[in-house]
């Protein structure tokens, strides 16, 4: 696994597992690999993967059945999107706003551009994200 340079490893692994859940690699209610199996897969220390799992657990994306392993929560996909939405609003958006502010781009312009983008997306379904 190639890791990005400026994000901690455990969060990147959590992101990867989230992606895999969204793509349906792990079905709702299915067991995900054990910490050690996943650690071997991504070549990372088991303690780091344990942190990723704990993180996903506190987000309600996976849950732990004692002695059996970790399973995908029934509303995992919803939880992942919710988490990502919050993350975006919390970290990405302020940066975006900062750019708008420093480059003097008025919000109206952004608004019309966004509408155009959505129009494109809905008229041409092949562009649509799954």
């Amino acid at each position: 696994m190639q890791f990005k340079e400026n994000q901690t490893i455990y969060l990147q692994i959590a992101e990867r597992i989230s992606d895999e859940i969204l793509l349906g690699h792990y079905a709702i209610g299915a067991r995900i690999p054990s910490v050690r199996e996943y650690a071997a897969l991504v070549e990372v220390n088991a303690n780091t993967v344990m942190r990723s799992y704990e993180f996903l657990q506190t987000q309600g994306i996976i849950f732990n059945k004692r002695g059996i392993g970790f399973f995908v929560s029934p509303d995992a996909k919803h939880k992942i999107k919710e988490y990502r939405r919050n993350e975006f609003l919390k970290t990405e958006l302020p940066r975006f706003f900062m750019q708008l502010y420093t480059l003097h781009i008025p919000m109206d312009e952004i608004d019309s551009m966004y509408r155009e983008f959505i129009n494109n997306l809905t008229s041409n379904p092949s562009n649509q994200e799954s």
Partner: peptide, 13 residues
Amino acid sequence: KSQFRKVIASGMN
């Protein structure tokens, strides 16, 4: 080296 990391990660407890 990559295999080595896998083996260590799965052999650790």
